[in-house]
């Protein structure tokens, strides 16, 4: 725990967790009014598939970390896999948004739109930021010097990526799966 980059990243993730907690609470707070809309317009199966992509990206990220620790040369491969899986998730979210907007469900239509788009939008933004960071790591592992990306760099970005996935588990459960309870 002596390493400052890791400590800093853990603290950052903790503060982000509070941020997302507030967005989730806003969604939950209005669920009584919005639950029906959510059940009728969202498709948990389709989004579930993209969810699987995002969750498996955590696994490939973990493999990339392990590969970096062992100095094996499969780092770039696993990073690439992580990026592709994360990319699939983002594309999925884009398709879902397009579909909803075509059905005239927008952020300003009603409380469902407000809470849904704000919550999932901020999550998507975090995935995008994560993808940029991962691309940087990939660039370093292909073109960088021998010790790059550093172990610590890998670890801290992995912490962020796992966090983004964990947030999605919470979001997916509250937004998409609530109707089943």
């Amino acid at each position: 725990m002596k390493d400052r980059v890791t400590v800093g990243m853990l603290l950052f993730v903790a503060s982000e967790a509070v941020f997302f907690l507030m967005l989730v609470l806003a969604y939950v707070n209005f669920h009584k009014q919005t639950g029906e809309t959510a059940a009728s317009v969202l498709d948990p199966i389709k989004t579930g598939v993209f969810t699987v992509a995002l969750l498996s990206s955590s696994f490939t990220m973990w493999l990339a970390e392990k590969a970096r620790e062992k100095e094996s040369n499969s780092v770039a491969m696993w990073l690439g896999a992580t990026i592709i899986l994360g990319g699939i998730f983002i594309v999925g979210q884009g398709l879902e948004y397009a579909h909803l907007v075509m059905d005239k469900i927008t952020i300003s239509r009603d409380l469902f739109g407000s809470t849904f788009f704000t919550l999932t939008g901020f999550h998507g933004l975090h995935v995008l930021i994560g993808l940029v960071l991962l691309l940087l790591l990939l660039g370093l592992s292909v073109f960088g010097r021998k010790h790059e990306p550093t172990n610590i760099g890998m670890q801290s970005i992995a912490i962020y990526w796992h966090f983004v996935d964990a947030v999605w588990i919470v979001v997916f459960s509250t937004v998409y799966l609530w109707r089943y309870v």
Binding site: V18, F19, F20, L21, A26, I107, S108
Partner: peptide
Amino acid sequence: PALNAAIVMILFDRLLNT
């Protein structure tokens, strides 16, 4: 971060009509 989240919502209320 709690304030930041709330402020984002108020901005959205005012700018994006949430």
